[in-house]
Write a protein that binds this DNA or RNA. Structure first.
Length: 432
DNA sequence: TCTGGGGTCCTAGGACCC
DNA sequence: TCTGGGGTCCTAGGACCC
């Protein structure tokens, strides 16, 4: 058996933990640049706010219903996620952190009659220790655990925990489960399946192997087997190193000059280099891309990208910035309003398996020491305490809009939550 | 006016090898 | 007239996930 532990309305729930005033008010959290709705509390869902809706389209609802709106605070969510995962790991051993708000658990070492208790314990402990509500779905495969989790969340009778175990239980659940909600079925597949007359997960599980394989390849076949209770997707306890790392942002304002773009790209490259060093790897090439605002069809459109090969695989900030800027120069065109740019590093190899270059003139050992020191300083004193000068060409007018940001309660000494207490005994004192 | 960011996997098709 | 067979590697693009 597998369990899927999923945080309810994760980002919205994070905002509530240190701000109990908004416990029962509708909350939405916006994407970067305060663009779209990416998380909603139950109250906000009940008001009919769809996922992914641009913020300006829900402004009237915000005003009428006094919805609390937040910019996304990934520092807070990342730290809360870590706490949730650590807490789950304190209950069970085999945990796969699947996403920022989800974890799979391998329950094969437990007796079947124990698993209800384990789910209860996880739910209770995460709730008490971290303050985030979670739902638990349990079933013989990961795909079915996803189904069970859905049910635990959607149907109040389950009280946050749903176990699908016997054949009948599973089939009855699948008969009521829309095929489009199955893990691995997206928009395209869903349409394709509907056209073939398959509307429920049960009907999908009954389709013939040959038809599935022909139409949906090996991935589809695995999915169908998982629905039948045959486990094809194992638990992955170890996180494999990333094969590509992307850092990109939409700009708060349109950008039309090279210098500003260069500063943005320098910062993206610096972030990518940090991520590389964190997973102890180096990249063989850097991709730089720029694009104008695709929603503004009244403006001239331009989008381009370029791959720059590095002489030696590298994770040195200064070197990655250097080559990223060479790339940017080659694709930059005057006369456009740029909205977004990004840097992708790829061709990633482990740090200790780098193919060196006979003609390489850089003293890499020395540079690596500098990077190490820089990372330590920035980790201790805050991001970009030390940075490469091209990261600060001019005013930061490309930066994201984040106008509704909550404090980083758990990661910044200056933004710790405050608890105020008063009593009749000490009427004039306020204790913080 | 305002529309996110970061990933993985799979396949088809071309280039190349013997 | 007729033009092999069996591979690998790479890339672009499309699908999916959160």
């Amino acid at each position: 058996m597998f369990a899927l532990v999923d945080c309810n309305n994760f980002y919205a729930s994070c905002e509530r933990v240190f701000n109990p005033k908004i416990k029962n008010t509708p909350i939405v959290v916006l994407s970067n640049n305060d663009g779209c709705v990416i998380a909603r509390s139950n109250e906000a869902k009940a008001l009919g706010i769809p996922m992914g809706e641009p913020a300006y389209k829900i402004q009237h609802l915000v005003n009428i219903h006094n919805i609390k709106v937040f910019s996304s605070n990934y520092t807070l969510y990342g730290d809360m996620s870590q706490r949730v995962m650590d807490t789950i790991k304190s209950v069970v051993d085999s945990v796969e952190v699947y996403s920022i708000d989800e974890a799979f658990v391998d329950l094969s070492s437990f007796q079947l009659f124990d698993i209800q208790d384990i789910a209860l314990e996880i739910r209770q402990r995460v709730g008490q220790w971290v303050g985030i509500p979670v739902s638990v779905g349990m079933a013989p495969t990961k795909t079915l655990a996803k189904v069970a989790n859905h049910m635990a969340k959607k149907q109040a009778i389950y009280n946050g925990i749903c176990i699908l175990e016997s054949e009948t239980e599973i089939q009855n659940a699948l008969k009521l489960f829309p095929v489009g909600d199955v893990w691995g079925v997206g928009r395209k597949l869903s349409k394709h399946l509907q056209n073939a007359g398959i509307t429920t997960a049960y009907e999908l599980s009954m389709a013939s192997d040959s038809w599935i394989k022909q139409n949906f390849t090996i991935t589809g076949l695995k999915m169908v087997h998982e629905l039948r209770g045959i486990s094809c997707v194992p638990l992955e306890k170890m996180v494999p190193p990333k094969q590509s790392i992307c850092t990109s942002r939409s700009f708060g304002k349109m950008v039309d000059d090279f210098e500003t773009l260069a500063e943005a790209v320098s910062n993206f490259a610096a972030r990518a280099a940090e991520k590389l060093r964190r997973q102890k790897s180096s990249a063989n090439y850097v991709i730089v891309f720029v694009t104008t605002n695709r929603f503004r069809q009244d403006l001239k459109q331009y989008a381009n990208q370029v791959v720059v090969n590095l002489p030696v695989a590298s994770s040195l900030t200064s070197e990655l910035i250097h080559y990223a800027l060479i790339g940017l120069k080659s694709i930059f065109k005057e006369g456009f309003e740029y909205k977004k740019a990004g840097v992708i590093v790829s061709g990633i190899v482990p740090q200790d398996e780098i193919q060196t270059n006979l003609f390489d003139e850089l003293d890499r050992e020395r540079h690596e020491k500098i990077m190490c020191t820089m990372d330590l300083l920035n980790q201790k004193m805050g991001t970009d305490t030390v940075f490469i000068s091209s990261q600060r060409n001019r005013k930061n007018n490309w930066k994201n809009r984040r106008e509704l940001l909550s404090p980083s309660y758990t990661t910044n000494w200056n933004e710790l939550p405050e608890a105020k207490a008063s009593s009749d005994i000490l009427p004039k004192k306020r204790i913080q």
